[in-house]
């Protein structure tokens, strides 16, 4: 009775997820007074809010992307009172510094997952299930055909492909998001094979993360002056949209590849017409989503972006009270051009 009178902990508005008790938004897509940010990807951390709150780990990249903003930081697991709400941030395993946000009002707990994955990528702080009454989850890969291979196997495949290219006198062009995916791949590469070159958009993020203490192998920034032939057999890491452009043409001959969860689908691999597609995602696969949701103990689940209709129906069939929330989040977009727009 009391809960009903108090209203829901979080509501869904055309600006984003809103907490009436604390008068703040989480990952809003239109300007608001107070924004709590799960992580630095552009669909979650947007420009134009009066005040920002994010984890210590996520803040440097958010600053790099959004410039001079009023950004306060918070450590994982620390509780802060905002109005009548108690708020804390917990690792989401998505990218370095990424968080789920726990909001507690009058004993009722809701958790906004942001984007997350449950496998340990060797770089991001691993996902921690947070018990709650209601869980707001993404479902980018919310169909049972998505099952991520063992990261060690993928690392071996990528290093094997690279080694074969070196032997054949080719460069290896690998397309990956500039925040998260790229660094996670760097951490999995075997630097003994050959030098690693990086696109400016990726190297900017690398610099910020190295500065925070994340361990990344040595890389060389691709500048207009760089002479590809000085780096035979190099692996060139670039945002997906830079592959196939004149920027990438200077590295010939080359074998090209993409790293994305979408590469699990043969049809998508073929449409990209790349030589190889490696199945690497920073989002949870089917099993990951199901385990994460079940471990929260939540009875109510809201799905935000991805295969929402199908995933909601599945959750209903599993006994959850599930709903779909329309948001402006975009999941893992193989075809995003955002990275290059931000390149210097």
């Amino acid at each position: 009775m009391l809960e009903l009178m108090a209203g829901p902990v979080l509501t869904f508005t055309d600006r984003g997820i809103y907490c009436p008790a604390g008068d703040f938004h989480i990952d809003p897509w239109r300007p608001v007074d107070r924004a709590l940010i799960t992580h630095g990807h552009a669909d979650h951390a947007r420009w134009g809010h009066r005040a920002y709150l994010a984890t210590d780990g996520a803040a440097p990249v958010i600053r790099m992307r959004l410039g001079d903003i009023a950004l306060e930081t918070i450590a994982y697991g620390t509780t802060r009172q905002i109005g009548d709400a108690r708020v804390s941030f917990h690792p989401a395993g998505h990218v370095p510094g990424s968080a789920q946000i726990r909001v507690e009002v009058a004993g009722e707990i809701w958790v906004v997952s942001g984007d997350y994955k449950t496998v340990d990528d060797g770089l991001s702080e691993p996902f921690v299930p947070v018990p709650c009454h209601a869980f707001i989850t993404e479902c980018t890969f919310g169909l049972p055909v998505f099952r991520w291979p063992d990261p060690a196997q993928i690392a071996a495949e990528i290093n094997g492909w690279w080694t074969a290219n070196v032997a054949a006198g080719r460069f290896s062009l690998l397309g990956a998001y500039s925040l998260g995916k790229a660094q996670r791949l760097l951490a999995a590469l075997d630097p003994a094979v050959a030098p690693i070159l990086t696109h400016g958009a990726i190297e900017n993020t690398n610099a910020v993360l190295r500065n925070q203490g994340y361990a990344l192998p040595d890389t060389i920034r691709v500048t207009p002056e760089l002479k590809p032939k000085d780096h035979p057999g190099a692996l060139v890491l670039a945002p997906p949209s830079a592959l196939g452009t004149s920027w990438a043409k200077r590295f010939t001959p080359a074998s090209d590849a993409f790293a994305s969860g979408w590469m699990a689908l043969r049809g998508v691999r073929r449409r990209r017409a790349a030589d190889r597609g490696f199945v690497v995602s920073d989002h949870a696969d089917w099993a990951g989503l199901n385990t994460a949701i079940s471990e929260t103990g939540a009875e109510r689940v809201f799905v935000t972006h991805g295969y929402t209709a199908q995933f909601r129906q599945w959750l209903e069939s599993q006994g959850y009270d599930a709903g779909i929330v329309e948001t402006d989040y975009s999941g893992e977009e193989l075809d995003s051009t955002e990275d290059v727009v931000e390149a210097p």
Binding site: L143, P144, V145, R147, A264, L265, R266, G267, Y307, Q310
Partner: peptide, 26 residues
């Protein structure tokens, strides 16, 4: 065999677009 309702198999097939692949993945 995958422990899934048939409608979810069909929904997956709609996305994958290839029956052999859907079965292999699921």
């Amino acid at each position: 065999r995958a422990g899934l309702p048939l409608w979810l198999f069909e929904a997956s097939y709609d996305v994958v677009g290839d029956l052999a692949e859907t079965i292999a993945l699921i």
